[in-house]
Design a protein around this nucleic acid. Sequence first.
DNA 1: GAGCACTGC
Length: 748
Amino acid sequence: MGKISALKGISNTFQKHQASYSSPRKRPHKRDHAWLDVSDDDLEVRSAKKQASSSKGMHNQNHAHGPRKKPRVSAPAHLPGREPIQMQRQQLPIYAGKDAVIDVIRQNDVTVLIGETGSGKTTQVPQYLLEAGLAGSGMIAVTQPRRVAATSLASRVATEQQTSVGSVVGYSVRFDEASSSDTKIKYLTDGMIVRELLGDPLLSRYSVVIVDEAHERTLRTDLLIANLKTILQARNGSASAARDRKGKGKGKAQEPSGKLNPLKVVIMSATLEAEKFSKYFGGAKVVYVKGRQHPVTIYHTATSQPDYVDAALRTFFQVHIDQGPGDVLIFLPGQEDIESLEKSIDLYAKQLPKESLGVIILPLYASLQPAQQAKIFASTPPGMRKVILATNIAETSITIPGVKYVIDTGKCKEKRYVAKTTGTGFDTLLTRDITQSSAVQRAGRAGREGKGYCFRLYTEESFKKMPATAEPEIRRCTLTSSLLQLRCLGQNFEELDFMDQPDEGSVASALKTLFLLGALDHTKSLTPLGRQMAAFPLEPPLARALVASAEWGCTAELLTIVSVLSASSKLFVDTHDAREEAADARKKFRHASGDHMTVLNVVKAYEDVSQSEGKKARKDWCRRMFVNERCLAEAANIRAQLRDVCEKTGVDWKASAEGGQDAEARVLRAMVAGLVQNAACLQPDGSYKQLMGPSVVKIHPSSSLADKKVPAIIYDELVFTTQIYARGVSAVPRSFIAEVPVFKRRSG
DNA sequence: GAGCACTGC
């Protein structure tokens, strides 16, 4: 493309990608980015071994078409809603290979099915299997990493089956379930099926388990896959598919049992990891299904761009001035960069000549208010161009219509746990380079409705140096919660055969934490306390604090605090622009002991407003106080769920310390029981040093205790950004920490 | 004195 002259003094030089993704003639190797190309066959079946050495597979015999002369670029990505639903189903790419898919799954215990969005695999395969009678007397489970996907897929498939959700087709996600004794196809989150595993270790209710989006490799998907391997041995005998790679994972589940109903496993994934999944399951069959994507032309910069925000600014205006209509999507790592770029684009856009298109700038990130997020779906008015500044959220979770140009900074933020064997590790949250699969995914966002263009703000060299795929979560997350769940199943990280084994240090760290919380004893066996903790859908330290609240008669308070802390959004809204206002508002709720009691104050105030005034007044109040209503609503849901678990496990959830003089002390004592490892003491030089670990930590400036000097603190978490910050901090007397049973146990 | 991608029970 060469140099595009745009605004004076702001231009980038781009080079067209050498191996263009958009060429209809060139057929890329399967493991490359075939999905951006619409190629001539819809489905191939082949074994993984053949696939590794050859790019030419055995064509599906049911596939009647010859090679197409023209790529299907003109075919609409979304079919008109007026067409009869059964016709729509038949026009999906996977329909051509329906019989082949059914046959392969019928003949194999494990099938790896590769297909991009638009192929129809997630909605159609479960229906094919049901219609072919493969469900037998059991159910077909389809797992998803995200809640919204599980619920919306269920309603789509229910419509296709001409029933309502909850009958033949159902779903199961946290806080919400729609299923009945008629249910044959159930969409559920991976976290939910791992929970089911605790009560039904062989997943005996299911005849087929389909693991969708397996390439995302969430911690829960990896736990499920490892368990599916042992379940296959138990339910199908020593079938070839369950052949044991490492000779590990041998337990009681190994005994073949004729009585158990056999299990079929289908792994659905993106191209890059197909072989890995196949190998893991002893050479499972791999089935390929083509998706529907329009071609995207990719450009790389000629030189690397250290200031990616500035490069994005220049590139945006090059596109805006030189290119035809179509919206622009810019990928940035975080809120801060988004806000900064938003200001710059706004500034330059005002200087554009009158006859050029107007610019609508739309930020998009997870913590943005839903009303703001919704703006991206409004259609672009004539004479205008939308530019969306987004984080990773636009890579998988939200699909934006109308995007023709993607600008990719090649950066993202990644949370990574740095393990310390003392159990006192911390999270880092740092900007880093994205992976190749992420880059391909981002580019693909330009080709959803027609021909698209992607401008990468990094060189082709840099692209080639990127890691192919992200490291699976099991290698970079805290394992405490998963280890507790595994111990409930009588399993260990070391003995289970995972696709990727976790880091030894992380396992040691998790063991230490669970031991200190009293969930495991010195022989690493599960204690009754541990089993009780596992019943709560909480991180183990919070579960421990909640259980401890029974001793101190403050369960009502702890339920509130723990619910807010485990909600996915933050309690306080904090935008850069109104930082001081927000801080002022927050002062009204501040409790001298710190952030945990402050949470109680906020919830109490919110409940008062809710009771005395209407919904609108409540909303206004939240806005004025910079309180995030989404967080409070989610916390109320969690609280109700936790209350049910209390009821079942015999914890008196009504017990309250309210009004008593020692209310604060009792609440803090319960918190300390869960956060023993998260304690730090003031040192003579004014810094805080971890009590059970080596690090010096600083109270995060967002805390109500920022800059305060108190003898000892406990905190919710440590995050390293520019230094190690403690977040969610309370001041506690040192004696509270010393009195925690684990210290007594040590000395006694 | 400063910032936080995403998801799950």
